[in-house]
Amino acid sequence: MLDALAQGYGKSTIIDNLSVTLQPGITALLGPNGAGKTTLLRTLATVMPPRNGRIRIDDVEIDDERSARKIRDRIGYLPQDFGFDPLMKVVDFVTYAAWMRGVPAGKWRQAVDETLKMVDLADRRRSRMRSLSGGMRQRAGIAWAIVGRPRVVLLDEPTVGLDPRQRLQFRKIIAELRDTVVVLSTHLIDDVAAVCDRVIVMHGGVARFDGSVAELSALGHDGLPGHSPLERAYMHLLPEGEQSL
């Protein structure tokens, strides 16, 4: 739950008075660059403390570093540019994530094996991270975020670098997480249409729309740019002057 969240960098306000309650299911964050999507994910991941307002995950209100530490093992977060040791093997990379998430040691192997199978990397488990293609590396990052089935999964542009077949695989992975709170930042409207239950459209640090995919599609009309009702509806929500492709 976010209540009147304010967030920013230096003197700049990026998110202003945002209130959102997240439920299990797949929520898309849509918006142009600079809309506040990455800042929101970083705040939810407890990387950045809020400037103002309240954040509550499960029964924990996050208001300082101590409360943030209580909740981090329930959060899986994949930033756009995630770090890794290039010499680390894929299986060790994902096992490390399982350890950080508090998965019991006796369950590491099963959790890691299941996750690598989900992201289609079981045959590359012994490969070093530096040897992976960009798409494989991105799937290893997704495995990092979901191993151990955290309560909240935050994915920032997770399909960057994936080819069409891999994007279909990604959608299958995400569809299996519907009992989890998944927040997916993306620019790809077709991914939203395929897997998301809810859409939040952000612009200028505020939510201009919050509802189902069908409700968003209903806002589109033929006079707007776009190749689908969902694309046209998204363009409808942008300020005049930004409604061109």
Rank of each mutant, 00 (worst) to 15 (best):
Q80C: 12
V60S: 08
V112F: 06
I200P: 05
V182N: 08
G211W: 08
V213Y: 11
R151C: 02
T115S: 10
P79W: 08
M1S: 12
D210I: 08
P86G: 05
S185Q: 09
L162P: 00
R178H: 13
R54H: 13
M48Q: 11
R125W: 06
N52H: 12
G241Y: 01
I57Q: 10
V119I: 05
D85R: 12
E231G: 14
R101C: 05
K37G: 04
L184V: 02
R178S: 10
I142Q: 02
V199A: 04
Q7L: 01
A233H: 10
A143R: 07
A214V: 00
S12L: 14
R165A: 14
E215S: 03
E61K: 04
R128S: 09
D163Q: 11
A111M: 02
S67I: 08
I62S: 07
A140C: 09
V147Q: 00
A194Q: 06
V119L: 03
N33V: 06
M100K: 05
D16M: 06
H221S: 15
A97E: 09
A6I: 03
H236N: 14
V160N: 14
Q169E: 10
V182W: 02
R69A: 13
L238E: 12
S127I: 00
V206N: 09
V94I: 10
R198S: 03
R128K: 14
V153C: 09
R56T: 10
R232A: 05
L5H: 06
G135L: 11
V147C: 08
D190G: 11
L245G: 07
L224K: 13
P150S: 01
A122K: 07
